[in-house]
Design a protein around this nucleic acid. Structure first.
Lengths: 357, 357
DNA sequence: TCCGATTTGTTCGTATGTATG
DNA sequence: GCATACATACGAACAAATCGG
């Protein structure tokens, strides 16, 4: 269990790292903090003592307690520490290991180190990661946004990086509220190509399963809609099944019920290969086969697309290449100003999960 | 004017330096000092806190306050950087993402950062990684050895860590020349259980495919041999197919040729699930099926064991748990001396790749 | 220049929790 | 189980430095 003074110290540290307590300025006096946190002065002083020891604060008798402006450049003989922080949503799942591999390889080739952390697509954990990166003093940051399609409470931290002149690049998605450069796949096009392919194979009524808490899911849906418009076909919004990180487990149950009572839908566009394989499994449980009964398109060309019993028709994803591009971008950015985004174009990879009708 | 606690601190420091308080021994308890100097306990504690901060004293709850025997060598205040280095052979492949995930999760929970690098099972790259870790000043190191069954030219680097008092722990394997603690799976037992299972299912003549440049492969072979001895069965050394990182691509060709001319072998123990699935594919190419024509046992219970068309009978591997154990070991070791290894016992997981005959 | 309000520094006292041997 | 020793937390008082008016 954390002690009171540790909790208070953590809070103050957070406020420093998110720039609520500005570098070089005083923080509220002990008496004030005592009231704020409802503890004795002694406890406040212990919390402050801890942060002074860590180098975040500096005290001046008679004047106040200040945010120390020297904590960022520590071990400064190696000031060009050549450490790049990487924050992704997941580490071990799906295509992320490949992306990280691409980043690591390219960074090490150039003498940079990689400081790694993951958020599990949870904003609280993202905050922890960002604090860690700030207090470690990385010279650049590669981030895959957490829940990029929802309001993000950690934007202040990203601004902290900007103020400290630490370059940040986003991969796979970006926070639209921030004007941070990003490197990603053209997800709208991916959704569009998947949908168009099903139309071209003679499918008339399509469904979509997409993730809605990140931007990638939103863009892939956009491509799905765009293809419908281009074909001058109306699509039934009821055939769009959305899920979030938290409701992922239930989506297959939902879609299974819907498909059982719907005889029109023959093709299903999936957010990614993982969902596609999950769907194929769910369909198998109700006695339906792919591609005989339903045609399915995945996305990301992950190992899952060829691992299961049905080889998936899917869309390419650069993975290692995207990681390497992010690494190159950030290494350039620590030396000079860099602007502009990089967008990879996906391509259709035809395998066995779509039937011509 | 000097404060009371400064005066007391000075006195205690003198007594340490004049050996009145002997290095490694306890000093009088707070209550005693309180009486000796005629001050409150709080004041005594402040004096002690000062000396702890200077590195002269070390406190142990419930036991006493000791004269720290390490106060002579410091100056690297950055040593409290709370960064742990992790070097693995691979990043994106197979079970490594899960191991790394286990490490990362546990480290971050405790406020540690993870500096990541990979060697691609190449000793030159391993050297680069080790240099990087040394110059970054990590406070602990978790390493998966590169080519642990061959002479390693980087042992000097590992000794450097030891000299600098930076703890190192190995995972999955270890360098037998170094007496470094390790955390791994009982690979001999894994090989033994796999082999024994095939015998128990009525198979008489078995083959083994194993990797020979790392210790895991050697130990798994040891288990294979042990099972034969226990069954009082001679095995034909020709039925042991070995490969290294560099010759991995050709091993399937070799074994295919051998099996075509050998009618006795019915069961094959594989180094891991990846090899097992590769073998199943290679057998399929020559018109043979698993488990109908050949029985196959994998290892590591990776995602590959259930991803392919044949669900593999394999052996369990702790993965995340092993990573978490390594993280916990190293976090403890940066604070105090730790010795001893941790060995996980594998268990047989029966699926569909072995037929009873 | 001085004063008084503010803020941190030092010191005392007391109570309860928790790990160790 | 018990005594010992350190850990956390509350409350109170006065000292010393700073800063604005």
């Amino acid at each position: 269990m954390k002690t009171k003074y540790q909790v208070i110290a953590d809070e103050i540290r957070s406020k420093i790292l998110s720039n609520e307590f500005v570098v070089g300025k005083v923080i509220p006096p002990e008496l004030q903090l005592q009231k704020d946190y409802g503890v004795s002065r002694h406890t406040v002083r212990e919390a402050i003592a801890l942060l002074v020891n860590e180098g975040f604060l500096r005290k001046e008798k008679g004047s106040g307690t200040y945010v120390d402006d020297t904590y960022q450049r520590r071990g400064d003989g190696v000031s060009s520490s050549k450490t790049i922080g990487v924050i992704t949503t997941y580490l071990s799942d799906y295509i992320f290991p490949s992306i990280i591999r691409g980043i690591e390889q390219r960074l090490r080739e150039n003498g940079y180190s990689l400081l790694l952390a993951s958020t599990n697509n949870d904003v609280d954990q993202e905050r922890e990661c960002l604090e860690q990166m700030l207090s470690q003093g990385v010279s650049g940051l590669i981030v895959e946004p957490t829940k990029s399609n929802q309001y993000n409470p950690n934007l202040a931290y990203y601004l902290s990086f900007k103020e400290r002149g630490i370059p940040v690049v986003m991969i796979n998605a970006n926070y639209e509220e921030l004007s941070v450069p990003f490197i990603c796949v053209n997800d709208t096009k991916a959704g569009y190509l998947a949908t168009k392919h099903l139309f071209e194979q003679g499918h008339q009524h399509l469904a979509l399963i997409t993730k809605i808490d990140d931007l990638q899911g939103k863009y892939r849906m956009k491509g799905f809609i765009k293809a419908h418009e281009e074909m001058r076909t109306n699509f039934d919004p009821k055939n769009v099944y959305t899920y979030t990180t938290e409701t992922k487990a239930q989506v297959f149950q939902t879609i299974r019920e819907k498909l059982a009572s719907d005889q029109e839908v023959t093709g299903i566009v999936c957010y990614n290969d993982e969902v596609a394989q999950g769907l194929i499994q769910a369909l198998a449980d109700m006695g339906k086969r792919v591609p005989e009964d339903y045609s399915v398109v995945g996305n990301d060309d992950s190992f899952l697309s060829t691992a299961g019993s049905v080889k998936l028709t899917t869309l390419s994803h650069p993975k290692e290449e995207l990681g390497a591009a992010a690494a190159e971008w950030i290494m350039l950015a620590v030396q000079q100003e860099v602007t502009g985004n990089k967008i990879f174009e996906p391509e259709l990879i035809i395998r066995d999960s779509v039937k011509r009708i």
